[in-house]
Design a protein around this nucleic acid. Structure first.
Lengths: 338, 338
DNA sequence: TTGAAAGCGCTACCAC
DNA sequence: GTGGTAGCGCTTTCAA
């Protein structure tokens, strides 16, 4: 085909100086021969790995499993669109730092996403030291202005949800939260408490739980609380999975969700747990975690393209959507008792 | 430090000819300087990408989301242990072939895993043509002997589950299956039908559904069937998520699961949907999809290490575990009616 | 046991 | 608009 490697490279990479005719010929040939530049060689030559790393310590995975994948899927689409690969490392919690060090020293990725920031988060310090660009899914307390992040307004979402319940007359509201050493859960709790405080109420520790958001967690706590001395009339729940458990627990107590007991849950808009339709099953605060993934990826790619840009962030509000699981507090005399 | 690049490379890669003393010095220095060989350069030099690709078309992702991540997590652990990276590509269904072609032509991965084989699967043909080693999670009908795969015995699991229900006296058994154009669901249906046939019964199409395994799918169909003319006394369900929906539907009809209506579900042993304890909530056929991921990865890495080896496979039986959701068929006179 | 040097397959710079 | 060539940072012969 009588063309130098140089020209072929330029043609395939869309350099402007190549003549249209040459480009056409090259493209045609490449197509015919099934040729595409070896990505390792290109990466070595350019010094960019064209990959983004996601380090998943087992502990995060255990609890955030379905939410995490939805985020990944969103991010993955953005990467594909921009010619980036996604590298996933599943590691023991003890090896998380190592994983980041390796990514940096072996140049395995051009940037990483931090998942599930904790209240005492430290990963960002390491990444800064390693000079590895990153975006946080969530926020790192105290480092908001010096890091790029994408987060939903957890505090406000739970404050609004609590206010909705208060407006319906509920005052005994239970909070089934995620693990509160995680930033998102911590903020949700604050929103809950702020709303109560706004009405001059103070939270009852007997009605507050913090744990992995499994289905049995919802069920067992709902049953235990409803059978207690001064049961709640409403539940505020941190995930659909647990909310389903709460609904089951309510049923086990012979009560009816949305009538005897209200539920509001946060809904990450996971595809296998649809909560939509004309009137969704659960009243919820909804925020698409998949969309968050797309946006986080965009932020990170922009950072990589322009390393000198200032940190950028995206703060999203959840929608508050009325479903079938909320209603006015039952008047005391009608109030069903298990 | 006065050592050639050659020696450093050998020391770091564990070549036997390096003296213990030299190796120690190299390791120490590397540690001190935070040095690790650039993976792109190494890949280029060795010709192996040391990565395994997972191509996720959106459609698979939509329905298999949580199950898929659990598999990935298992595989990821195996990869880490063997120094391999995991590359995830989330693509439009229309670009799936392209994704595989790119992995092959650009040498992005040394092998791939095929997820969610369909009844009319064709991906393996492409991969053979591309000369890209692969392992199937599930089985490709008609290509069992010429491909490496790992699968649970779906047919037998559902046959055993059905037999258990039959032994309990149930004859009106509903099947809420996954999408039957997928191989796993197809086999589960066969198991169900085989068991019925073994007792001289034939399946009632009015009691059989095939769809994405969401929670509402379980609930809506349970309600519709239970309100029908000749309602089922038991449900056989393809996923925990849908089974939870079935339980909700049963509750909505004023019936009690495990007493008025029995449920057996398949349980992939997902961490956020624990179904264990002394007596699990759901009677189930259980098979850890995470374990499957680990094993699939091992098969694939072995294939890559020895390209001439014959295809190997792993066929696992699910456990049949008795929980609280099954009981003898209610005698007709006592049988609760919605 | 160690070192020198030739690639691996590209991109990017500098000529033409 | 096109081509020659020098790396990119390793691994891997081949020699010593």
């Amino acid at each position: 085909m009588n063309l130098s490697q140089t020209t072929v490279s330029r043609a395939l990479n869309g350099y402007p100086e190549v003549s249209a005719e040459t480009r056409r010929r090259v493209a045609e040939m490449a197509d015919k021969l099934g040729y595409a530049p070896n990505s390792q060689a290109r990466r070595l030559a350019t010094g960019r790995s064209m990959a983004i790393g996601h380090v998943i310590p087992r502990s995060i995975h255990e609890m955030m499993n379905p939410i995490f994948l939805e985020f990944i899927a969103g991010a993955g689409e953005t990467y594909s669109r921009h010619g980036y690969d996604m590298m996933l490392s599943v590691v023991d919690d003890a090896h998380e730092e190592d994983a980041y060090r390796q990514i940096a020293s072996r140049k395995k990725a051009d940037g990483v996403i931090i998942h599930g920031p904790a209240n005492d988060e430290r990963r960002h310090l390491l990444l800064k030291k390693l000079n590895l660009p990153f975006v946080v899914h969530g926020r790192i307390p105290g480092a908001e202005s010096e890091t790029s992040w994408i987060d939903m307004n957890n505090r406000r979402a739970f404050e609004r949800a609590t206010n909705l319940l208060l407006d319906l007359g509920h005052t005994r509201i239970a909070l089934l939260n995620g693990l509160e050493h995680m930033d998102f859960a911590h903020r949700r709790r604050r929103g809950f408490e702020d709303a109560l405080a706004g009405r001059g109420l103070s939270p009852d520790p007997a009605l507050m739980r913090s744990a992995d958001m499994t289905e049995p967690y919802g069920c067992e706590n709902a049953v235990a609380m409803l059978k207690g001395d001064d049961p709640p009339t409403a539940f505020l729940v941190s995930s659909m999975i647990s909310a389903i458990g709460v609904a089951r627990g309510i049923g086990q107590c012979g009560l009816k969700a949305g009538k005897d007991v209200s539920i509001i849950t946060h809904d990450d808009a996971l595809s296998f747990l649809p909560n939509c339709g004309e009137v969704p099953i659960f009243t919820c605060t909804r925020s698409s975690v998949r969309y968050a993934g797309e946006k986080a990826a965009e932020l990170l790619l922009a950072m990589i393209a322009d390393p000198d840009a200032k940190p950028a962030s995206l703060h999203m509000d959840a929608e508050l959507i009325i479903g079938q699981s909320t209603g006015p507090v039952p008047s005391p005399q009608n109030q069903a008792r298990p």
